[in-house]
Computed example of a mutant assay.
Amino acid sequence: MFEINARLLRNQSSVFLCGETVEVFVTISNHSLPEHRISQSNIDAMEHLAWGSVQINGYCKTQHKIKEPIQSLPKTSLNVHENSILSTNPKILFCDLRLANGESRTYYYREQLPPNCPPTYKGIDIKYYYKVSVATQRLGSKVQLLQVPIRVLPLFNIEDKVEPIPAQGDDITNEELTPTNPFLENDRKVVSKVEIALETLQNITARRRPNFYIITNRRGKIGRFCLFKPSYKLGEDIVGSLDFSCRSVRCVQLSVTLQCEEILLRNTPKSPVSDKESKSSSGKVTNFTKHHEICVGLLQTQMILPIPLHVTPSFTTDLVDVRWRLHFQFVTTLSNELMPADGPSEENWNGPKSIDIETMVWNLPINIHSTNPTQIFQPQILN
C-alpha cells in the first residue's frame, strides 16, 4: 500500500500571490504488510509505481458558460473538470518507481502562478478555486489523484519594472567609486515583480489622505464624514469620523456596513456599450463587519470596521467585477422633542414614545488590496 503526502514549503500558510512560485514536497511511502508479499525475494518484496506527476489546476464554478479560457489548456488526464480555467504543464516526478516495505522517496516541485490569473473567490454566483494535483498510477490500475487546495490573492497592478544588472563596459557612476564593504555583496540583484508590487502596495495603503464628505438629504445637512485614507489591505481597520456640529437635520441612529458587491459581466468586454451597461447595473451584495450606534445628542463620533483576512480583495475578470463599499444608513428626524427644554428642571426628562423619522442610504466605494501572504495564517492541508 502506497501513501502520498504533499506538504507546502511555506510554513503555516497556503496563501500565494498571483505570480508567486508554489513549492511542494511530495513524499511517496510504501506501507505494504508482510502477508501481502508473495515471496521473500527482493524483486517481489518491492511495490511498483509506473509514473507520478504534479500540476496546478484552477477551476471556475458558475451557472454561465465560459466561452474563452484564460489560457490554452494542455490535454492531459488530470483535466477532468469541465470548468477548468487554468492548468500548468504537468511535471513528471518519477517513472518506474520501486520501493521496499517501509521505504519512502521525497520529490520537490515548484511552479509559478500566472500573474493574470483570477484570485480565489467564493461568491454568490461564481467561484474561483485552485488545487495542486498529484497523480500516480500502478500498472493495470486506475490513476490516483491527490489535490491540495491553495488560496491565490490578486497581484497589485503595476508596470513590470525590473532593475537590470549592469554589464561590463557601462559608464561608472559616483556610487561605484565609493568605498565598498568586502563583507557585503556588491552585485545588483534583479527585483521581481512580486517584490515591487508588495513594496508599492505598502506605500499606497500607508499613505493617509483624508477625504471629507458633506452628507445631506432633501431636508438639509446631516453632518460631515471624514475617511482618513481610501485604500486598505486585508486585515486593516477602516477608521472614519462623523461630525454633526454643522447639522440642520438631527441624526437619531447610524449604521455602517462593509459590503462586497458582485457584478456579473454577461457580455463580452470588447464592446464599450455593453461594458457601461453591465458595470452600471447593481450586483449581489454580501455583508461583513458592521458598526451600529445611537447618536442622539452626539456632536462627534467615530467608526472602526475591521477587514477580515479571509475575504477576497477587489478584482475584475471577463466574468465578474468584485467591488467593496461602505453602506451607510442614517435615520434622521426634524422633531425637537428628543432633547429636554432649556433651563433647570427638577424632574427627569423622558423621551417621546414615537417620532417621525426618515432613513437615508449612502454607498461609498473603497479600495481593498491584497496583503503579504506570509501574514495570513492558514494551516496547510495534508492528505
Rank of each mutant, 00 (worst) to 15 (best):
M1E: 13
A6F: 02
A6G: 11
R7Y: 11
Q12H: 11
T21N: 10
V24Q: 15
S29M: 06
H31Y: 11
P34E: 09
H36F: 15
Q40K: 03
E47V: 02
A50W: 05
V54D: 05
I56N: 06
I56V: 15
N57S: 14
K61N: 04
T62L: 01
E68H: 12
P74I: 08
K75F: 08
T76D: 14
T76G: 11
S87Y: 03
P90A: 02
D96M: 03
E103N: 13
S104A: 02
E111L: 02
P114S: 10
P118G: 00
K122R: 10
I126R: 12
Y128A: 00
Y129N: 05
R138Q: 04
L139K: 06
S141T: 14
K142L: 02
V143C: 10
Q147G: 02
I150C: 00
V152E: 01
E159G: 15
I172V: 15
D187M: 03
V191A: 08
S192F: 03
T200L: 12
N203F: 09
T205D: 00
R207P: 01
K221S: 08
G235V: 02
S241R: 07
C246K: 14
V252I: 14
R266T: 12
V273D: 01
E277K: 13
S282Y: 05
S282T: 12
S282Q: 06
K284W: 00
F288D: 09
K290S: 10
L299N: 15
Q300L: 12
P306M: 00
I307A: 01
L309W: 11
V320D: 00
R325D: 01
E337R: 08
L338E: 07
P340C: 02
P344H: 13
W349K: 07
P352M: 06
I368E: 05
P379Q: 08
